[in-house]
Amino acid sequence: MRDLSPKAKRGIALLMVVSALGLAVMLVLTALRDHVVFFYGPSDIRDQASQGQIVRLGGLVAENSVTTLADGIGFTITDGTSSMDVVYAGVLPDLFREGQGVVTEGVLDNDIFRANNVLAKHDETYMPAEVADMLKDQGVWKGQE
């Protein structure tokens, strides 16, 4: 260390401070991994949440599952392997529709999820409606309906 120029010493000190901090943040993030998750899928929610605790449940709204109930609307959230029925009374976002992504906030009540808030989640695909129709006609549609 003694033979190094002040410039090199500053560089090394800086590198050490910054990498130590980076390491610390990485450790914190790893520890927080499960808490940073914004929502759980239907597969995890039964293990992750206890009855009556406020949690978020996200996934796709299952096809043909939206029904009008006496106390709001009902629909099923699915992630392909597992699904859960949701009951909700309130305003739905414009993008809410069958086959679309959705994140709901509410409580688990036996095997029904009682939501008090519903947010729409969309994917990262952007295209004009004509292109979407064309892809569907050609049978190469990969996205959501």
Binding site: R33, V37, F38, L119, E124, T125, Y126, P128
Partner: peptide
């Protein structure tokens, strides 16, 4: 990519090319 977020994934800077129409 790391966590479930409400925000969607990247449309332009992604490994398999942009998932966004050229007109957009």
């Amino acid at each position: 990519d790391w966590w479930n977020t409400l925000h969607q994934g990247s449309s332009v800077l992604r490994l398999d090319g942009p998932s966004i129409d050229p007109a957009m």
